[in-house]
């Protein structure tokens, strides 16, 4: 069928998560949040984080964006729960590398491998990394609003 060759980018999990994300809501209680904004295309995401002790207990997000950015935000939420801020910051760097190169050897990112397909679509890499930029900003206590451009 048409677009079969796009399955490397739009794997089933991405289409599924993009359509019906599990974490796509504002948390009732949260202790950190930040907005991410991709002014070139209009994608927006706000990430909410709740900690339990040193590790993240819950992540929610509100987003307006493409299937890839929504799926990436949702899969990110799954991946980071239970990790400390320092671990998540390292994961964010690892994810950005994977989105650009298609390669990753970070065990914590294995579930996110379906998103590595964006590396072949330069204009779509930012779609996948935007939620991570917002999450990193939330954990750092800064707003991702201004920081997105530097993630390119």
């Amino acid at each position: 069928m048409m677009f079969e060759d796009l399955r490397d980018l739009y794997q089933d999990v991405i289409l599924d998560r993009g359509r019906t994300p599990r974490h796509g809501r504002r948390l009732d209680v949260f202790d950190a949040d930040a907005k991410g904004d991709n002014p070139m295309c209009g994608d927006r995401v706000q990430v909410f984080v709740r900690h339990d002790g040193a590790s993240v207990a819950a992540v929610g997000f509100e987003a307006r964006g493409c299937a890839i950015s929504i799926a990436s935000a949702d899969m990110m939420a799954d991946a980071v729960i239970g990790h400390t801020d320092a671990e998540i910051t390292a994961m964010a760097a690892g994810f950005a590398g994977m989105a650009r190169s298609g390669e990753s050897h970070v065990p914590a990112l294995q579930a996110l491998r379906p998103l590595a397909g964006v590396h072949e679509y330069p204009s779509r890499i930012k779609c996948a990394t935007l939620p991570w930029v917002a999450l990193a900003a939330a954990l750092a206590g800064t707003d991702a609003h201004k920081g997105v451009a530097s993630s390119e």
Partner: peptide
């Protein structure tokens, strides 16, 4: 059901 960027990527293919 399809964001404009996804539409553009598919059309580009």
């Amino acid at each position: 059901g399809a964001h404009a960027h996804d539409v553009a990527t598919l059309l580009d293919r």
